[in-house]
């Protein structure tokens, strides 16, 4: 116990500079968000009163609700789509040696190197050609495609650590490949899939450039675009409202993290069973 205690102290001590650095922007965000408008520009740390009404004002002024809904919709839908196509692909790549396997792997790696900014002109033309401009679905489609490369890559390396003997044993016992997959493979792969899904969710949740280019009406804006529009080129920036908006936009993901955290660790541990 004392040994664990000592380790606890050392660990927290070692992490503390980083923790300060991580929490600093959150503190800035929170304190600015509750400052009365006339104090927002002053560099004092504590506001004279906590002006919670900033949040209500922000919600009304900034079209926040619909943007939050769009962001959640885009992130969830693109993650699901990406997983539906990535899991079989990763399974195929990790279980079978076949002609063209190397080429596929290289293609996936290469397609990750194209940043949305680099591709954005071409992507825009593609979406315009499909007649999907300003539809949230077009963004889902693009995010999912960008997530596929990464997800297949991640999943494949996790899947390779799950011994194929288990499924083969199930086949020998008379299970069909589907049954073997569902009963034997999936339970073992689920943690790794969760981790990958989280990566893809976060990327979609954060993405900026594609959303900025494809979405053109406020009804279809996602959160990053909505918040960016509060600071970009306006003739005045109401920092307290901007920070209130970022704070509210951040909390759901932070909570999601806290909630998934145990699962995440287990996933990382289990996924690597050798």
């Amino acid at each position: 116990m004392t040994r664990k205690m000592r380790r606890t102290i050392w660990s927290w001590l070692a992490l503390s500079p980083l923790i300060v650095l991580i929490l600093f922007p959150f503190a800035v965000m929170f304190i600015t968000a509750v400052k009365p408008a006339e104090e927002a520009l002053q560099s004092t740390w504590w506001p004279s009163t906590f002006q919670w009404s900033n949040f209500i004002k922000m919600w009304g002024n900034t079209n926040f609700g619909p943007a939050l809904f769009n962001s959640v919709y885009v992130a969830v839908a693109s993650t699901l789509l990406a997983m539906v196509v990535s899991v079989p692909a990763a399974y195929g790549l990790s279980r079978y040696r076949f002609k063209g396997r190397g080429a596929v792997q290289q293609f996936l790696l290469v397609s990750q190197m194209l940043s949305p900014i680099v591709l954005v002109i071409g992507l825009f033309r593609l979406v315009a050609w499909l007649g999907l401009l300003d539809s949230v679905e077009s963004v889902i489609f693009v995010y999912a495609a960008f997530a596929v490369a990464f997800s297949v890559w991640m999943l494949q390396s996790y899947f390779s650590t799950i011994p194929a003997d288990l499924e083969e044993a199930a086949w020998i016992e008379g299970a069909s490949p589907w049954q073997a997959l569902i009963r034997v493979f999936l339970p073992l792969a689920l943690p790794a899939m969760t981790v990958t899904a989280i990566f893809s969710f976060i990327n979609a949740w954060n993405e900026f450039v594609i959303a900025l280019t494809m979405l053109r009406s406020q009804e279809s804006y996602t959160l990053p675009i909505q918040i960016f529009s509060l600071v970009a080129g306006r003739y005045t920036i109401e920092w307290e409202l901007v920070m209130a908006a970022t704070l509210v936009a951040t909390v759901p993901v932070a909570v999601l993290f806290a909630w998934l955290q145990r699962y995440l660790i287990r996933g990382l541990a289990l996924g690597a069973v050798k």
Binding site: I22, I202, N206, F208, I227, A249, T250, V253, L256, F257
Partner: peptide, 9 residues
């Protein structure tokens, strides 16, 4: 946590 905040924000 830094991950929970979008890069733009």
């Amino acid at each position: 946590l830094p991950w929970a905040v979008s890069l733009t924000m």
